[in-house]
Amino acid sequence: MVDVRPLAMGEQIAHQLRREILTGAVEDGLHLAEDALAARFDVSRGPVRDALRQLEIEGLVENRRKRLYARPLDMEELDELYALRGALEGLAIRLAVERAEPQEWDAVQRVVDRMRTAAETGDGEAFATADMDFHGSFYALARNRRLLEAWKPYHRTFSVLVQMSDTRDLAAATEDHQEFLDVVRTGDVSAAVARLDQHLQSAKGRLRDVLGAA
């Protein structure tokens, strides 16, 4: 669910650079010099180094002879990301359906209710946050620490991608998540995983359109 802890400076810088790289505000191949970034964010080089190290792990920064360069996603990498997410989240759903108590799904319903409120007020950022909390709930309810740790690095990337790809029809997107949750709560694992695949393919398609237009 929502992590209310304030982000460390390195994480804040990573979040800003991640958004800029994924949206194309930072050009492909741009040299990301620690000194220049430290001056830009008015910090020492330590938080910048932490941020760049995290982005390198996520594949958004490339190390070439000890110099770091921005590396936006191409379409093939986008397909790889969604394939990996489908595998991880499919397992999370299977375990969550098996292990979660019926009342625990009520908390997930409250996340969908947050999405509905965000849709009614037109708050796209709040909607995107709730969207990630919705999917994150599967990992939490799966009660598998290693699975959760495997998802964490990609959660950061997808938190930006979700904002880029979410449809402007937030009401329809809310109902899509409601129907998704309804399927999960039936306990039919095969139907839930199939619904996940449909959900992710649709999101990936919208994102491909966004990236293609950019």
Rank of each mutant, 00 (worst) to 15 (best):
V4C: 09
V4S: 11
M9G: 02
M9F: 08
G10S: 03
G10K: 04
Q12G: 04
Q16H: 14
Q16Y: 10
R19G: 03
E20D: 13
E20T: 01
I21F: 01
T23Q: 12
T23G: 11
T23K: 09
A25N: 08
G29D: 10
L30D: 12
L32W: 07
A36T: 11
A38T: 07
R40M: 11
R40Y: 11
R40L: 14
F41C: 05
V43P: 01
S44R: 11
R45N: 10
R45F: 06
G46H: 09
G46Q: 12
D50E: 12
A51Q: 07
L52G: 00
L52Q: 02
L52P: 01
Q54T: 11
E58K: 05
V61F: 10
E62W: 11
R64T: 07
R64A: 07
R65H: 11
K66D: 07
R67Q: 12
Y69S: 01
A70T: 00
R71W: 10
D74K: 05
E76P: 02
E76W: 11
L81M: 09
A83H: 08
A83C: 03
R85C: 08
G86H: 09
L88Q: 04
L88W: 04
E89G: 05
G90W: 09
L91G: 02
I93T: 08
L95W: 07
V97Y: 13
R99M: 10
A100Y: 09
A100Q: 10
A100P: 00
E101A: 14
Q103N: 12
Q103A: 13
V108F: 04
V108Y: 03
R114V: 12
A118N: 09
A119N: 06
E120L: 12
E120M: 09
T121K: 13
G122I: 05
G122M: 04
E125R: 14
F127A: 13
T129S: 15
T129H: 15
D133V: 08
F134L: 06
H135L: 05
H135I: 01
S137G: 04
S137E: 12
Y139P: 00
A140S: 13
R145P: 13
R146K: 15
E149Y: 12
A150P: 00
W151D: 08
H155G: 04
L161G: 07
M164Q: 12
R168S: 12
D169G: 06
L170M: 15
A171F: 01
A171I: 08
A173M: 14
T174C: 11
D176N: 14
H177G: 00
Q178T: 14
F180S: 03
D182W: 07
V183Q: 03
T186E: 04
G187W: 06
S190G: 14
S190P: 09
A191F: 06
A191K: 07
A192G: 05
A194C: 05
A194G: 14
R195H: 04
R195E: 13
D197Q: 15
D197F: 15
L200W: 12
Q201V: 02
A203T: 06
K204S: 13
G205W: 07
G205Y: 07
G205V: 03
R208F: 03
D209L: 15
A213F: 15
